[in-house]
Every structure is written in structure tokens, then in C-alpha cells.
Design a binder for these strands. Structure first.
Lengths: 201, 201
DNA sequence: GTCTATAGGCCGATAGAC
DNA sequence: GTCTATCGGCCTATAGAC
């Protein structure tokens, strides 16, 4: 649609959408609610986005871009694996992941986009793991980089998901275990810092 | 509200709901669509379920009960860890998990119910792992049972989720790796069979 | 337990003035 | 780019007859 990508109104619409999705879930998003939250008329939403699907897609791309930026910054960190792990279990980042996944399963276009993003993230993740293991001379260890990536990703998502649900049985033990393992590769976690996620609003 | 728990109509409503949720996502579920699919009037849905929330809750309980049954059957299997793993990565079972999780995050009652179920499942899972490790004299190994449970659960959910999304980078390697590991504990996977999930329709 | 009828509401999207 | 006005549709839920 019209309105360039950096229009203030356009951003405000995306901000409001992100907020509603977080507070009430994707199903609660409507042009009228967005308008109310952003202080504008609901028809403007349709001016900037041909359809609600297009709006969701645009929001996904914006969120994913931010997450990917954090990921690439981890590559340059002193202890990349620790940094990656910290990013993964940071609950402020992947807020909307499960919303998008649920939304995407039944919307072809979004589904493909999310799959593409997931693959890109996985590649970078695995490349970092691979590089670190090589640098430490552990390349021939028991853990193929891609497997280790999936393992860390899977565990962190599970912990995130359950934390949101309000249960945490075994989380502390698991985190301790993994950090112990990462410590054996990269040394203790001291000094690992990550940038906070900048949410809408 | 009335109509006992085993009413045919009631079951038909739950079946139709499950089907719609699977095909189009939870947001697409409506009393009218359920009625159309089940061949009855939409008002009957409200007769059997005070509200849509109550309907979702009832469906969750039904699905969860089935999954829990499969889980407890695994306890008695010859190779419990292999069986548990096969159940976990079986994509026909946890179909609706991500729908319910997305739905639940913003609905207090359902959220608590899912958290409760997750904890119950985790306890059983960890107990099985613990027992197997003890039987094989590996109780003092590097892997605490609860950590191993979370790891297997996390990885299987990630693989399930990505499979639904249409991407599978690293899946084969990871599955091979885990089955190799399980093989070291329980011996090769030969002969491990699981019951198929009985879906609606 | 199942039906008809209906109240009351939110939704996406478009047309056209400014 | 933002506004007013509006169409047509689907939604949950209840009331009341049978």
C-alpha cells in the first residue's frame, strides 16, 4: 500500500498490533482495536495494509529483523555460546513467537515466511556453534553443531513457553546444567551481557 | 449445560471443534461452524457449553486425557525411553498443543489447566527416566532425570513445530543422535511400537 | 434436548469527500 | 493521508415454544 515504510502512522499501527497481540493474542487483533490504541481511525489501518494478513506479515518481518540483529551481534561477542543462550532464554524477546506460529500454521504466506526465517536463524546459530567448537579444538566432540543448536533452541523455547504458562518444574536444574556445559567450552559466564529487547511502547 | 458427559451430541460437538481447530486454528472456531460440521443447530453448542471458553476447556481435557493415557502406557513398555521418545515426536498426537498454548496464554482458567497438565506429564516423564537410569545402574551419570526429560521434550516439540511449518534442517541428525543415545541406555530401538493417536473423525 | 427467532455487537473492507 | 459514511457478514448468547 501507499505510505512509505517509515511513515510514523504505519509504525504506530505496527506498535499497537504488537501490543494487542501480546496482551490478548492474535485473535484479538482488529483494525478497530488497533485504531483505538493508536489514536486513529480504523480505516487508516486498511490504507496502510491491504489486509490483516499483510499487516501480520509486516509485523512479523519487523520483529524477526530485530531478533536477527541480536543474533548477529552475538557472533562478535567474547563468549558467543553464552550470549546466544542468554538471548534464547530471555523472555522479553520471543514474546510473540508462539502467537505467530499458531497464526502461521493456517496461513500459507506467513507460514513460508516464518519457515524461511527459522532456517536463516538456525544456519547462523549452527555456524557460531561450529566456529566456537573449532576454536576450542572440540570439533570432533560428541556433539554435531546443528544438533547442539537444535537442542539449545528447543530447551530454551520450552522453558520460555512454560514460564509464560506459569510453571517452572525442573527449569532451574536445566539452566544450571546447560550453563555448566557451556562453561566447560567457553569458561565461566561472568561478563556476558545482552542488549534488552526494545518492545513497542 | 445439561446433557451428561457421554452424550452423543456433546461428543460430536467436541469432535467438530477439534477438527476446525486443526484445520483453521482456534480463532476460526465458532458455534456456527461447529454446528455446520456436526450437522446441528448452533444453539445446541450453547446448550452443552455455557460459553466458548468452557468448550475449549472441555476439549483440552479430553485431548490431554488421551495423551496422558499414551504416556502411562509407555511406563509399562519394554523400552520406556524409546517409547516415550516415539510418542513425543509422533506428529499425529500433539496437533493441537500449540493452538491450546496460544489460546491459553490469554485465558486464565485454561492457562492454569494447561500448566497443571504440563506438570503432571513432566513428573511422570521424569519418573520413568529416573527408574530406567537406576535399573541400568546409570543413576549417577551426568544427566539428572528432570533435565533429560526437559531436553527430550523440548527437542521433540521443536521438531514437531518446525515440521508443521515445513522446514526440517538438522532434524534427521538430531533424531539420529538422540536415538543413538537412547540406544546406549536401552539397547537398539528394534520392536518399539506405539499406538496411533485416535483423532476426531 | 432440540427447535425458531432474535437481540446486540464487532468485524473487514470499500467509496468518496477533503 | 486522513476523514465520514456505510455495506454486508459473522459472531455469542438468550428467550421461549415444543
Amino acid at each position: 500500500m501507499s505510505g512509505d515504510k517509515h511513515s510514523v502512522t504505519r509504525s504506530a499501527i505496527l506498535d499497537a498490533t504488537e501490543q494487542i497481540m501480546h496482551e490478548e493474542g492474535y485473535a484479538a487483533v482488529s483494525s478497530r482495536k488497533i485504531a483505538a490504541k493508536a489514536g486513529l481511525k480504523s480505516q487508516l489501518v486498511h490504507y496502510y495494509f491491504r489486509s490483516m494478513d499483510e499487516l501480520f506479515l509486516a509485523l512479523f518481518q519487523r520483529v524477526e529483523e530485530q531478533q536477527f540483529q541480536r543474533l548477529t551481534q552475538a557472533i562478535a561477542a567474547k563468549k558467543p555460546l553464552h550470549t546466544l543462550w542468554k538471548i534464547s532464554i530471555d523472555t522479553t524477546g520471543p514474546w510473540l513467537n508462539k502467537e505467530f506460529i499458531a497464526l502461521a500454521t493456517h496461513r500459507e504466506h506467513l507460514r513460508r515466511e516464518i519457515a524461511r526465517a527459522a532456517e536463516r536463524t538456525r544456519r547462523v546459530y549452527a555456524a557460531v556453534v561450529s566456529r566456537v567448537l573449532e576454536e576450542r579444538g572440540m570439533a570432533q566432540g560428541a556433539w554435531p553443531p546443528i544438533v547442539l543448536s537444535i537442542l539449545l533452541d528447543g530447551v530454551s523455547r520450552l522453558i520460555n513457553s512454560e514460564t509464560a504458562l506459569g510453571t517452572e518444574a525442573g527449569h532451574a536444574e536445566t539452566v544450571a546444567f546447560i550453563e555448566h556445559y557451556l562453561g566447560q567450552i567457553e569458561g565461566p559466564a561472568a561478563g556476558v551481557e545482552i542488549a534488552l529487547y526494545r518492545a513497542a511502547e
